[in-house]
């Protein structure tokens, strides 16, 4: 819940490209294999890969080198520009600071590294958090850069997320642009009236903003929902006819976690020799 001070207008959501829906703002349009994979394949592949990654002990460093290459390979195959991927990964920063503190302030046995006394356990744990966290973030960035939000939603539905949750996600995706644009407008209005958030005195004002935002969101949401009901909305996503992934797609997608698992197994054998 702590983030470095940031300008809300620079948040990924408000990287403005008006007229596109929520997920589209994050998607970088390409025609790669990664883009063409069905969303359920991508989500499951990513989830399994991250599980393998998290379950790997940090002293299997060779495995992590290969994981890194796998992630990098996926990003390159998806033709995503590395600077954009790096920028979107900045969300991780607070935990990077935490990871850096671990060797310095950590307890236990100390080792000399370049003349600085560091905690051995701290180095290991810090590296673990840094590496695994980074791979997780890169995977998620890769997913959102290659998959529009409504496709992610469809993927979640295919992965049997309970229907009520799917519906809630779908409403969230449907409204989030409207509300965040509304927020951006309200912010611009505040700024143009010379308002600057300054400590405690601004809270009353920010609360009014939040209150107004809730009422606006609620009333708009109610109208849209009633309109949807009157057009026959039943809670199911409309079936567009395509979307069941064939064996080929599953094979392509699951290559990532399967390779990672093989690497883990091989490293395990090698290390225990």
């Amino acid at each position: 819940m702590i983030r470095p001070n940031e300008d809300p207008l620079k948040h990924p959501i408000s990287d403005h490209h008006h007229g596109h829906d929520f997920g589209e703002r994050l998607v970088l349009h390409r025609h790669s294999i990664v883009h063409h994979l069905e969303p359920q394949v991508k989500i499951l592949a990513m989830f399994l890969f991250i599980i393998v990654c998290v379950a790997t002990p940090i002293h299997f460093w060779q495995a992590f080198v290969v994981y890194g290459l796998l992630v990098l390979g996926t990003i390159l195959i998806a033709q995503l520009p590395l600077n954009v991927v790096a920028r979107r990964s900045l969300i991780e920063l607070p935990f990077v600071f935490f990871a850096i503190m671990m060797p310095i302030f950590g307890s236990g046995e100390r080792v000399e590294v370049l003349g600085v006394s560091l905690s051995r356990l701290g180095i290991e744990s810090g590296a673990s958090i840094l590496v695994k966290g980074t791979f997780g973030v890169l995977c998620a960035v890769c997913l959102s850069a290659t998959t529009p939000a409504r496709e992610i939603l469809r993927g979640l539905e295919r992965l049997r997320l309970p229907n009520l949750l799917v519906q809630i996600v779908s409403f969230m995706i449907r409204y989030v642009n409207v509300v965040s644009d509304e927020m951006a407008r309200m912010k611009i209005a505040r700024l143009s009236r010379g308002f600057e958030a300054q400590g405690v005195r601004s809270w009353r004002f920010l609360a009014n903003v939040a209150g107004a935002l809730f009422i606006r969101s609620y009333e708009r949401g109610e109208r849209v929902y009633l309109a949807m009901l009157s057009r026959g909305y039943s809670g199911k996503l409309p079936d567009t006819g395509h979307g069941s992934a064939g064996i080929r797609q599953w094979a392509q997608g699951l290559l990532l976690p399967v390779l990672a698992l093989l690497v883990l197994a091989m490293t395990n054998i090698w290390m225990s020799r």
Partner: peptide, 19 residues
């Protein structure tokens, strides 16, 4: 669903208000 969805959007938006 719509009510919880709205609250989700709302929380998401409000989480962008940094104090």
């Amino acid at each position: 669903a719509p009510l919880a969805g709205l609250v989700a959007v709302f929380i998401f938006a409000v989480q962008m208000i940094n104090f």
